[in-house]
């Protein structure tokens, strides 16, 4: 082929490939930027507060993942009418949690060279109190029952080609003193009764018992554990194995968690289980699909968790004691918190 022929062929290919690329981007802009065309469930600007006025009843606050102008904003619905029109705030979050009048919102902002992330501590009216830059993609967030402590987990990716090496980084922040414990991997760790140190230790998914104690997942050498954390003693002690993303019940007696059940397909390895902390007995819930979420206790007997849906994720609910059947609570919603 002549030089001219090659150049013409290249030019043609650039035009064709460029058109395909432009079409793909345009399509994605239309879909996301469908900010003009709201998709159901209905949502409208409203008041989202982390403290319900007296007599207002319980509310669920969550990230609205429905396309449209209110996408990713925090929204609020009455717990007894979850399909009611959503009242939305102006605060956008990837992950959210709230308790005791304190909220923690993990946000992303695409920068020129990479996405940047931050953790924002908000007050009862969702006003920012303080924010902290995050070293990776937000994964989990929790607030202690009193509202004093907040915790978050992010994924930090390796720099290897293909970016398949991930580790977690979990931090706990005291919102009274603003003292930040940046990395729980620095806690002293006791595995199966003896002190343990290894570079491959990962800690994620904090759930608070009170302002001094918490539970979290610890993993090392391919094994996950439920560990009990003591903030004053700076220590983590494993109490059970094969537990991920623990969530402590409001009465502090049970842990809902993801269990990696042997024999399941590699693309759906987890089931939602509940562990009784007094008897250490495990109970499978009636949810038979794989759950990759840190469940939330709506009441002392009901769990809420996210499953992939048409627009982002849907929230589902199932009884904690193993009976009943899963019910869809809300579509296009994730990371709920229950207030009041």
């Amino acid at each position: 082929m002549t030089g001219k022929g090659r150049l013409l062929l290249l030019l043609g290919a650039v035009l064709v490939l460029g058109s395909v690329a432009a079409f793909a981007v345009h399509h994605a802009v239309e879909r996301a930027g469908g900010r003009g065309r709201p998709q159901p469930p209905a949502a409208a600007d409203g008041r989202v507060w982390l403290a319900a006025p007296a007599g207002a009843g319980r509310r669920m606050i969550f990230r609205n993942t429905a396309g449209g102008p209110h996408r990713d904003e925090l929204a609020s619905v009455p717990t007894d009418r979850p399909e009611a029109q959503r009242a939305t705030s102006k605060l956008t979050c990837l992950r959210f949690s709230a308790a005791g009048g304190t909220g923690i919102c993990l946000q992303s902002a695409p920068g020129p060279l990479r996405a940047s992330y931050r953790a924002v501590v908000v007050d009862e009216r969702l006003n920012e109190r303080r924010s902290y830059p995050l070293p990776g993609v937000p994964s989990r967030a929790r607030v202690s029952p009193s509202g004093r402590l907040v915790a978050w987990t992010v994924f930090v990716s390796g720099d290897s080609y293909g970016a398949t090496a991930f580790s977690t980084r979990t931090s706990i922040l005291d919102t009274r003193t603003w003292k930040l414990q940046d990395n729980l991997e620095e806690y002293d760790l006791k595995v199966d009764g003896s002190w343990y140190r290894s570079l491959d230790v990962n800690v994620w998914g904090v759930t608070f018992a009170d302002d001094g104690h918490f539970y979290a997942t610890v993993s090392t050498r391919g094994q996950t554990y439920l560990a009990k954390g003591d903030i004053a003693a700076h220590s983590l002690t494993t109490v059970h194995s094969n537990v991920e993303c623990p969530s402590l019940s409001p009465d502090g007696t049970r842990i809902a968690y993801k269990k990696r059940v042997p024999g399941l397909p590699a693309d759906s390895p987890w089931r939602l289980y509940v562990l009784d902390l007094r008897t250490m007995r495990e109970t499978a819930t009636a949810e038979h699909r794989t759950v990759d979420d840190q469940a939330v206790w709506a009441t002392d007997t009901t769990l809420v968790y996210a499953l992939p849906g048409k627009s982002g994720t849907d929230l589902w609910t199932v009884p904690a004691q193993g009976s009943g059947t899963p019910q869809r609570l809300a579509s296009a919603a994730s990371t709920p918190a229950f207030i009041g």
Partner: peptide, 27 residues
Amino acid sequence: VTAVMPLYLVVGLGLSPLGFGFLDGIY
């Protein structure tokens, strides 16, 4: 692809990508 993969896995697909690491040696 490398730059957006962590964001895609965690935020886009809602996956926990921790299990990926151990394959690195094999790769």
